[in-house]
Simulated assay, not measured.
Amino acid sequence: MTMAPQPSVARTLIKTLALVSVTAALMASLRFSAVVAGWVDRVAGTRLWSSLYRLAGASDALSRERMIMAGVTVTCFVLALPIVQAGEWCVERVRGRRG
């Protein structure tokens, strides 16, 4: 079994910055896209979310809002992971063709 080379610190920092940026961009789409905001409203009104509210003890509007924001943040992060990985794969492929 061959060992993969260790990634550099610079590469790790760039991937981290890309992940944070893509996550922030996805979260911003919630603010500026009525379609995305409608999806979140629809999901937040489901029985599953109502059960989560009860389970977490979110009885007032502020605590429910915090739960929704936590869900949006986690969802955007999970969506950003494969986007950044695909971007890294594309960059590596372009570098492989040049070198």
Rank of each mutant, 00 (worst) to 15 (best):
L81F: 13
G45S: 02
M67W: 10
A25D: 05
T73Q: 10
S33P: 06
A25Y: 01
S21K: 06
T16V: 02
P7K: 05
L79S: 07
C76G: 07
T2M: 08
A28W: 04
G45R: 01
R11Q: 08
L55A: 14
R66E: 15
A10H: 07
A10I: 14
W89C: 08
W39R: 08
P5Q: 10
R42P: 02
F77G: 15
T12M: 12
V78C: 15
L30C: 10
G45H: 00
A4C: 05
L19P: 12
S29E: 11
M27Y: 06
A10E: 03
W39I: 10
G71T: 09
R42S: 09
A37M: 10
T23W: 12
G38C: 01
G45K: 01
P7C: 02
T23V: 11
A61N: 15
F32H: 13
I68T: 15
V94T: 00
A18F: 09
C90W: 03
R93N: 02
A18V: 00
W49N: 00
V91S: 01
L19F: 07
G38I: 04
S50Y: 03
G96A: 05
V35M: 15
A24P: 14
W39N: 07
R54Y: 04
I68L: 07
A25G: 05
T75N: 09
T12W: 01
T23A: 10
A25T: 10
E65R: 12
L48P: 02
G57N: 11
M1R: 12
M1P: 11
G99F: 08
T23D: 05
G38N: 04
L79I: 14
R54G: 04
A70Y: 03
V91T: 00
S29M: 07
R98K: 04
G71S: 06
S50E: 12
C76F: 01
L19G: 12
P82M: 14
R95D: 01
M1E: 14
S59F: 11
R47M: 01
I14G: 13
A44M: 00
T46V: 11
K15Y: 15
Y53A: 01
